[in-house]
Amino acid sequence: MKTVLKCENLHVYYGSIHAIKGVSFEVGEGEIVTLIGANGAGKSTTLNTVGGLLRPREGSVEFEGKSILGVAPHKVVSQGMALCPEGRRVFAQLSVRENLEMGAYTRPASEIPGTLQTVYEHFPRLKEREAQMAGTLSGGEQQMLAMGRALMSKPRLLMLDEPSMGLAPILVDQIFDIIRALNKAGTTILLVEQNAQMALSIADRAYVLETGRIVNSGTGKDLLNDDSVRKAYLGG
């Protein structure tokens, strides 16, 4: 299996706070890999570092064999990876359609209609709400929009930060079905989740983060049955 993303010995600081302490992990082509862990374990920090929003003080991030550490943050997306940020962060005062267009900002205008079509196939609801301001969507719809927007750049690696946050269980199921479908359609997925049960059940492989360090890793199935993981994250 080809390695798409390779992070080695990442150290990230917020000022003097040492948030990530030597994290290393890999994502292979076609995989769903998840990082699970409690609040403040460093999951989002890791993802934001890969996405170029944060700079590590030490360590390397390689995407398809090329280091992305020297790449300007706004140029990371054109390398072929997209980050769907925590809390969705859709542009509330732009329409659904305009939000999606922003997702394809780095791509030629002629390619947008085709990708838009594909995104609407995954998220028919967005098509219905095309002209609506994103701020007026429900939480689940905003999550779909945030994911659709990330897909508009046609990423080979899609990074999702807490897609289930604040959603009703039925919507969580729906979002995870879509994640699986996107993966089947050929997108490699790196997923950060607090909902460990859900994340592990769809993941090929998983890493457990605790206070800035990876403390456990394995296949999704193995970790679902792992005693320490069950105790800490799956409610016994």
Partner: peptide
């Protein structure tokens, strides 16, 4: 449109490229 996006959320706008 990019300007409006930046005025709402610089971080998210950066992620869009």
């Amino acid at each position: 449109k990019a300007m409006r996006a930046v005025s709402e959320d610089k971080g998210a706008a950066t992620l869009m490229g």
